[in-house]
Amino acid sequence: MFEIKNISYEVSGGSRKKVLDSISLKIKGGSLIVITGTNGSGKSTLAQIIMGIKRPSEGQILLDKTDITNKTITERANFGLAFSFQQPVKLKGIKVYDLISIARGELVSEKEASKYLKQVGLNPDEYLLREINDKLSGGELKRIEIASVLARDAKIMIFDEPEAGIDLWSFENLTKVFKKLKAENRTLIIISHQDRILKIADEIIVLNDGKIKSHGTPAKILPKITGGKL
């Protein structure tokens, strides 16, 4: 069980602004949660707070009843959390193979590293030894980012807008990967606007202006979204 209790996040600058306002959630192990909402509603901030990239102004995060609110990113990673960034970073001089090995915590075989690249639609022969630099397109970087998260084999995987920059074929493939991970009892928290991802969710959480506006199954939430009521 993963629990978020009364999480708030404020930024200062001119006037103080609450980006997140007392968010509380309980996420069952093995479920697929999609967090959606308009731009600026606080989705990515919430995801980053869960991973420890941002620290909340108030509130607690509990993983299997252990308070991880003050844990570092590394500690959370070692507790079994993984995070896919919305904007993947470039790492000059680090090859895709190196990144996969870092994610696995050991030097992996080419065969094993290739497995993760194939899952995101990248040809290992072409990409395994490529440097993660600005010669790669945004879509390629995004897929490498997701591959590194898949390689973590984590209990809880957070994906911040995984669809951004990904072509349709790879996206279809990615939704299959998400379903497979769910079948393996992984917990997935996905930030997304994408209809196909919303449809495979167990629960959808709609954020608006830093607050939970609605929360429920796709059957309950999707008609409201398509009807323009959310």
Partner: peptide
């Protein structure tokens, strides 16, 4: 960049 590698452990 540092955060990315920290998320990988």
């Amino acid at each position: 960049q540092i955060n990315k590698l920290m998320t990988l452990g």
